[in-house]
Design a protein around this nucleic acid. Structure first.
Length: 495
RNA sequence: GCGGCUGUGAUCUAGUUGGUAAGAUUCAAGCUUCCCAAGCUUGCUGCUCGGGUUCAAAUCCCGGCAGCCGCACCA
């Protein structure tokens, strides 16, 4: 089934493997004309919603290439690098540190390659699969190394996450934005991880897009900045660690999560905001959405609270992570303060602190894929129902038939709308064919010029999702289009 | 990365005792058509890549690449 959606995504111009005429590389994907529109729209909707949470949240941009020192400080150079040993007989590779830890029950994470080789021969480690002897240990780094400069002496990496760009820029932005907390820095951009075996389409890629908002805040006062009353009576769809195996998802009052489960109120507030984003704007059905709590073992040690945002995707066989909400404490800025020797401490009302970070992290490609998965309502006909703000084209304009009389007005309407909206014009094939084409790429509204319209200046406006049609005046079209495109005007409310 | 299976126009599929590729859909052009893939005519596009065996390879053999499944990996 995933393959069906994959071929649809390809045929309709959304997404497919990069460099396909050369046989492709695993884990790299390109967006086509429809996919690029859809992705850009998702990003715009995301930006509008999350930047709207606070006047002091801003979109910035930062480089894809980072110096080694920065990634050393962040912990990536060490934690993204795994020591591997390979069996000389059967070729299987294993995590050397894990094998040693199992065998000796002592920590082996910090061992050098030489120390690992020594340990392996000392305790006589052999391949768990075939008992064959191991070769020399080697490092496998999930980060792509980059040579900068003619001699390549400046060591650098492609960034494994966009978050670091925000941390590195925190200090300057704190000054620029006049020393206020919370300060939010968002980055939408590429990140790179040299996955060993990328699979499952766009779910795990080596080059991917993240949309991340890092909120720098004072945990003592952050809640005062939020309208916590918004949580009154609201429930969150969660699966907590202690609910595993018993209940799939439970709808739980915000208050309950704060009082019973001792989650910070600002954290739950943002859970609610993220949930609203998915349910109300992206239109994910309630039964396909959940916050999935990561256990202490599953989450990175610096995350004090960590829920994944998961959506049930039929193409990927169940609930899959599309985003994460991480309370990272002051880990990141503290690390960079140590690494760079720049003070990250800020002074507020005489109190000094290193700001804490609440991270909202979204995988854009996964989210775009989820749109195709969730909103594909009919697999046979391939009908896609996308919200107007997300659809590659918001409107399509057709002459009812390819007749010289109808074409000028149709083109006129196309010109009228195309500067402000993504509009498709099509006059080839039958009218039904053209409606069907728009169904396939999720265009919500079609405007058709017919012979009646030539005399009374009206056109047919069609809601693709319901196939309902209404006649509207041409001179009202701009106003109606504005309402429909923004979502403020519903088709059913048109008279 | 290891093992198993797979790879035919834009998409889906037929085609293996080896003999120069078939169909459906799509797309384009024309005719027709007054509102969800209608019809008719014409047309475009292909055997994953490289090597080998053979008079002859989509078909057999070897290797690469890619996809799926399992294992491992996914701070």
């Amino acid at each position: 089934m995933s393959e069906d959606v994959q071929s649809l995504a390809k045929r309709r111009g959304f997404i497919w493997q990069s460099a396909e005429i050369y046989g492709s590389m695993a884990g790299f994907y390109d967006y086509g004309a429809m996919g690029a529109r859809l992705k850009r729209n998702w990003e715009n909707v995301w930006l509008k919603y999350f930047m709207g949470l606070n006047d002091n949240y801003h979109l910035i941009d930062s480089t894809n290439i980072l110096p080694e020192a920065a990634l050393k400080a962040s912990g990536h150079v060490d934690s993204f690098t795994d020591p591997l040993v390979e069996c000389t007989k059967c070729g299987h590779a294993f995590r050397a540190d894990q094998l040693i830890e199992e065998a000796t029950s002592t920590a082996a994470e910090e061992l050098s390659l030489e120390e690992i080789d020594a340990k392996v021969s000392e305790i006589g480690l052999a391949c768990p699969k075939c008992k064959g002897p191991f070769g020399k240990a080697m490092f496998f780094n999930m980060m792509f190394p980059i040579e900068v400069g003619t001699k390549g002496t400046d060591r650098a990496y492609l960034r494994p996450e966009t978050a670091q760009g925000a941390y590195l820029n925190f200090k300057r932005h704190f000054e620029i934005m006049r020393r206020k907390l919370p300060l939010g820095l968002a980055i939408i951009g590429k990140a790179y991880r040299n996955e060993i075996a990328p699979r499952q389409g766009v779910y795990r890629m080596r080059e991917f897009i993240q949309a991340e908002l890092q909120i720098f805040m004072d945990p003592e006062t952050f809640s005062d900045e939020l309208d916590l009353s918004e949580m009154d009576g609201k429930e969150i769809l969660v699966q907590l660690v202690d609910m595993r195996g018993k209940k799939d998802v439970q709808s739980m009052p915000c208050r309950y999560l704060i009082e019973q489960y001792k989650l910070p109120d600002f954290y739950v507030y943002h859970m609610l905001k993220v949930q609203e984003f998915y349910l109300d704007i992206i239109k994910i059905p309630k039964n396909k959405f959940r916050f999935y709590e990561k256990s202490e073992k599953e989450r990175a040690f610096y995350n004090r609270v960590h829920f994944d945002i998961e959506v049930d995707l039929s193409t990927l066989g169940g609930f899959r992570e599309l985003a994460g909400l991480h309370y990272r404490g002051d880990y990141d800025l503290t690390k960079h303060q140590i690494g760079s020797k720049e003070k990250m401490e800020v002074s507020l009302d005489g109190r000094k602190l290193i700001p804490h970070v609440l991270e909202l992290s979204f995988g854009v490609d996964r989210n775009v894929w989820a749109l195709l998965d969730i909103h594909l309502v009919d697999e046979r006909t391939g009908v896609l129902k996308l919200p107007p703000q997300l659809a590659p084209y918001t409107f399509a304009v057709f002459p009812l038939m390819k007749k010289d009389e109808l074409i000028p007005l149709a083109k006129e309407i196309h010109n009228l709308l195309k500067d402000d909206y993504d509009v498709c014009y099509d006059q080839s094939g039958s009218i039904g064919k053209r409606y069907a084409r728009m169904d396939e790429i999720g265009t919500p509204f079609c405007i058709t010029v017919d012979f009646d319209g030539l005399t009374d200046d009206t056109v047919t406006l069609r809601d693709t999702d319901t196939t309902e049609q209404k006649r509207v005046k041409v001179d009202e079209l701009e106003r109606i289009a504005r309402g429909l495109a923004s979502g403020k005007l519903k088709f059913k409310d048109l008279n």
